[in-house]
Design a protein around this nucleic acid. Structure first.
Lengths: 143, 143
DNA sequence: CCCGTTTCTTGACTGAGTCCAGAAAGCAGG
DNA sequence: CCTGCTTTCTGGACTCAGTCAAGAAACGGG
């Protein structure tokens, strides 16, 4: 369990000022993985009703650039955020209901994180998105 | 080289009517891989100045759903289209200049196309996006 | 060549996200 | 604990990609 004190230390560690909006945003992202910006704004408002939309956008951007949260944006989706950072995990997206599920790199670390030079590119990240049907939608389709 | 006749046959093969706007869109996507919608509209206008923006959007959607073009949408980018379809290739995106380059599946067919059941998901596609610096931006940064 | 259906045009509209100027709040140093 | 500098937040206007909808035009089977 991550506490408010942990969030404070995360912010200080990233040389960011500790503000109520940022704490609420961190909290919301940890509580709702893969949530879109509107959901995060709603969650923040439950805690601090007066926080502006713009403050949430700004917090998310800063937290993303310092690496405390991660932005994911599957094709056809609005921006979503998650708190699992620093590990090499990927996502499965349901084509039917758009639910997103975490997936640890299926093939060990080998092919998907290897930074390599190809075509002269200097690669630093390989992002994998799996597309298909989640259990519920798969069952619904089969029946 | 793909000719106008080929494009006609592609459309008929997909049970789509052959119209001038669609031919121009197909032509533009083949001529400008990874172009965004505005660039495609501009290219179409060079050929048929009176075609509406909406017709291009609609053509791209239909061509995408029948599989004649492929939509790619890297995080932070607007919709882009390409004509290479049906093969299992991926993309490298430059973090600095956003140029997109094709990449054949580096590890053969094995890990990235294998449809597998995991967490109950029924996966039908694995999309890989490599992030890094293109040769030019890498050289510019090093110097 | 005609008619029914699909597609295109035109123009208003939506919704995520950005920009900006002034007000408020964090956080060193005393 | 105050002071003052700096970063951050508020509020509101704005941008831009993409969508919606109604009527006009064009495709193509018969």
């Amino acid at each position: 369990m991550v506490t408010a004190v942990d969030f404070q230390q995360m912010l200080r560690g990233a040389a960011l000022r500790v503000t109520r909006p940022r704490l609420a945003v961190l909290n919301a992202v940890h509580a709702h993985p893969h949530a879109d910006t509107d959901s995060i704004i709603a969650a923040v408002h439950r805690e601090l009703p007066q926080v502006s939309r713009q403050a949430v956008y700004d917090s998310l951007h800063r937290l993303t650039t310092v690496g405390l949260v991660r932005l994911i944006q599957p094709s056809g989706s609005v921006a979503r955020y998650e708190a699992r950072v620093g590990d090499n995990h990927h996502h499965m997206v349901c084509r039917s209901c758009a639910v997103i599920t975490d997936v640890d790199c299926a093939v060990g670390e080998a092919p998907c994180l290897t930074a390599f030079h190809d075509n002269g590119f200097s690669i630093d990240e390989a992002e994998v998105t799996y597309w298909g049907l989640c259990p519920d939608c798969f069952a619904a389709k089969s029946s």
